[in-house]
Design a protein around this nucleic acid. Structure first.
Length: 289
DNA sequence: TGCCAGGCTTCAC
DNA sequence: GTGAAGCATGGC
């Protein structure tokens, strides 16, 4: 498969500046399963084009990723891999060492961890994570994907990658100034107003990423919850999936059911201080897949 | 056809 | 501070 893409790469890259040219970056990576990540409900713009080949748009970046066992082929600029995608997928973190701390007598958690081997907590763009998880509320994942795609096609910048057109995630300016009924036409329903007003607040300086970075988890959560349409659950998702605060533990209807059924005495947060959010994601994956 | 979805804001008390 | 009501839409 990667041979075909290499040929395409040569075709499109023939007249390009080498700096702007995609390359095939080959890596052997442990504990990394793109399909599991795609189905984990963290990101909504990742698809499997064909078995083993994934297409992902994050912010204004586009990546085609091909997998052959533990060998991965990243089709992007080398610099983009180093400065963006490696961090995005959290590839410098040793997940095996984190998972070794899972209580072996906790059969359910052990099952979930083994069932979602290769899951990683992404480091997504702050604004994109805020908006996509505002859209996620009282919504199902197929419809969230459609809503986000509608939003990107309507308000995102059209980009080109070696002749291939795609839409970047919209900027706060675009969504803050958007006509409310146009936003509703993206099938956002009542969330359209949340998206518009939260975008306006972000433009005015609420939830500034530089400010959030210096805050404790609790203070950052409080700051995020100043955004219209962001409550405790969405704030926890942003803390976990964008700011990589791995102690954040979003509780939605699925996790509530898991906790009620498998942890009637309470989830052992004290054992997993600082990493409970990672385990939450394994529990979530087990529940929805 | 009806329930439910990675919940939130508003309002009454 | 707490609890109930209302909210858009489509997947299953």
């Amino acid at each position: 498969m990667h041979i075909t893409l290499r040929m395409r790469l040569r075709h499109f890259g023939c007249n390009m500046n080498p700096e702007d040219q995609n390359q095939v970056i080959e890596k052997v990576i442990e504990d990394f399963e793109p399909e599991v990540i795609m189905r984990s409900g963290q990101c909504f713009r990742m698809t499997e084009e064909r078995p083993g080949t994934f297409l992902l748009i994050a912010g204004s970046h586009l990546l085609r990723l091909h997998q052959e066992g533990k060998k991965f082929f990243f089709y992007c600029r080398k610099r983009e891999y180093e400065e963006f995608w490696k961090g995005y997928f959290d590839l410098d973190t040793d997940y095996a060492s984190i998972l070794r701390n899972v209580d072996p007598s906790d059969n359910y958690l052990m099952h979930c961890v083994n069932n979602a081997s290769g899951l990683r907590i992404l480091r997504q763009d702050l604004y994109e994570t805020i908006i996509t998880f505002i859209i996620s509320q009282r919504n199902n994942i197929p419809r969230i994907r459609r809503c986000v795609e509608n939003l990107c096609r309507r308000y995102g910048l059209q980009m080109k990658n070696e002749g291939e057109c795609y839409y970047a995630f919209p900027k706060p300016e675009s969504l803050a100034q958007a006509n409310l009924s146009d936003l509703q036409n993206c099938n956002l329903g009542y969330r359209a107003e949340y998206v518009k007003r939260a975008s306006g607040q972000i433009l005015e300086g609420t939830a500034d990423p530089k400010v959030l970075q210096g805050m404790s988890d609790a203070d950052a959560k409080e700051e995020l919850m100043k955004l219209f349409g962001v409550g405790t659950k969405v704030a926890d998702c942003v803390l976990l999936f964008s700011l990589h605060r791995t102690g954040a533990f979003p509780v939605d209807t699925h996790i509530r059911q898991v906790l009620d059924k498998h942890y009637p005495e309470g989830f052992p947060f004290e054992r997993y201080e600082g990493s409970a959010g990672i385990l939450q994601q394994y529990l979530f994956y087990g529940e929805v897949n």
